[in-house]
Structures are given as C-alpha cells and as structure tokens.
Nucleic acid binder design. Structure first.
Lengths: 148, 148
DNA sequence: TTCTTTGCAAATCGTTTGCAGCATG
DNA sequence: CATGCTGCAAACGATTTGCAAAGAA
C-alpha cells in the first residue's frame, strides 16, 4: 500500500472525500503485518471511533483492493485476510493454529516475467501451508497430526 | 489428489463407507483442471445423480481438504475454488473475467526448503493475478482498466 | 443388523445493500 | 450548499448443522 498521503491525493483527485473513517482505516493498515480479517480490524478500530460501522469498513477495504493497494487472500481458515504489502513475498500459514507470518526475504522468488502465457501479470500471491514451531512443539508432546 | 482407488482404501481403513456420492465427486475431481467452485461442481454433478445435495458435496470437499487431497484458494472473485492438483504449480487468474488456468511448468518455482522460519512446509499455493489475452484484446478496443 | 452417510430444510455467518442524515470540499 | 459517505438494519448468498431415513458393511 502506498502512503496515506498519496491515498489522500488519490481520493481528492477522483472527487472523493477524505473522511475520519477512511483516514483511521488507512492509518491502521499502513505498515500492518498481522494480515487481519475484516473482523480483526473492526474490533481493533471500534474503540478508537465508536461510531464506525462494519459496512464502512468493508466499503473501504473493497475500494483499497480495487485500487490495487491491498491484497486479499484465503488462509484456508475460512476467513479472508487483508495485506497492505503487495511487494513480492510469501506468507507462512500454520494449518493448526492459523498463525500467519511473512516468509523471510531470502525466500522471495526470483523475478517473474511480466507476461506469462499471454497474461499481463499485475499482482502475485504466494502461501506456504505448514506447521508453525509452536504447534510442532505441541505435537511432539501428543500425537502428530502431520508427521514428517 | 491421489487416485480414486487409494481414496477407497483410505475410507475403508478408517471405517467409512464408499457411497455413490463420494465416488461421483472423487471421479469428477480426478484430473480436473478447471478449478471449480462448489456450485460449479454441483451444477455439473446434479444431472448425473439427481438426488445429490449441496450439503453432501460440501461435506465431501471438506474432508478431502482435511486429508490434504485437495487445495482451496480464493481467486479474488468472492468464491472459493478447489484444485485436486497439489503439486508445485501456480495459477494465472484474470482480474477481469476471473478465468483461471494453470501456469506453464517452466514457471514452477525451484524447490523450496522443507522448513522455513521453523515452519514445517506441507503445502504451497501460488497465484499470479493479471489480465488474460482475451480481456487484453477487449481492453485494446475500449479503455484500458489496467494499463501496462 | 449396525452405524455411517445422506437429503432436506432451517440456521448461521460473513458480507452487501438501501436509504435517510451528516459532513467534507 | 451539493454531493459523497456513513450508520443502521434488513437483505443476501454461501456454507453448516440437526435430524430422520437410507444404504454400506
């Protein structure tokens, strides 16, 4: 996601309005690395702006996705997660506790062609599903659900 | 996804039953490269087994996902897609018409470590979002929604 | 016969929509 | 002060669940 300032410019340029709700949501997303769901954000922001409605949050998230400022992805837990970081990187997703963290930079895959099979590539999304260190420790104590 | 025969063995081994519904769904998925949604499969299979209910289809798909036989992913169109091919490969997703095709084999990324940041990797999922050749042709005729 | 799975329909959950009032530009 | 945005609540669509009946083993 670009800076909040450039979002302000973008909205003004298209005749939109910079409201307190949008600013709050933009600021919350800026630099967020927790891959939150809409509900996560709502419970986080509601106390800061009690009037905030879920509908507004969805509106704002959807427009960010349409603008290509935010990426959505399915972590396999039945919830949609949002990530303001659209740079090439992968997520590590735990199949047991659904923890999501960014993969270290050295995992980032090498540059891909701007065009593949005739598709003009705009965005990429990559997830590795597995068992996080914490859950591995738990499994070692009990029965292993995903033996090596 | 493994062969239908090995699924039969698996179900029997856990005391389950090989029903006409499961067989039908397994056979439909075997070798399927269309990345269908639950609805897609339902409209495709309903005529072949008129009694089939959506609930049963969801049950069967969910158990396949839990068994690691089928992968689910969000194509960004608001629908969950299923893919029986769990081998390393990427999907190309058109942002305009939501067409999904498998990326050619030479795009497949090189082997990754079995362990990243302490996570034991079990599954991987990769999508490239962009504009398909057909939609590019349409855009050329009109205004470009995603200019190069 | 036994016990899993099915089909139906109702319940649920996340997300979207319609509309009157409000606030930005 | 004109228009776009918000909040509310109802609508919506996809998925899940409860339970009696059906059918594999």
């Amino acid at each position: 996601m670009q800076s909040v300032e450039s979002l302000v410019r973008r909205v003004r340029a298209q005749g939109g309005k910079v409201t307190a709700q949008r600013m709050l949501i933009w600021r919350a997303l800026e630099g967020d690395q927790t891959h939150p769901t809409a509900e996560d954000l709502y419970t986080r922001l509601k106390p800061l702006l009690p009037g905030l409605s879920l509908a507004t949050l969805y509106n704002t998230l959807n427009e960010l996705v349409e603008w290509g400022e935010v990426r959505r992805f399915d972590a396999g837990d039945g919830h949609i997660h949002y990530d303001p970081d659209c740079s090439p990187h992968a997520e590590l997703v735990c199949l047991q506790c659904h923890t999501i963290v960014d993969a270290p930079a050295h995992i980032a895959r090498p540059a891909i062609p701007a065009e593949i099979a005739g598709f003009r590539i705009v965005l990429r999304s990559e997830q590795f599903f597995g068992i996080c260190p914490t859950c591995q420790a738990k499994s070692d104590a009990g029965s292993a659900a995903y033996p090596a």
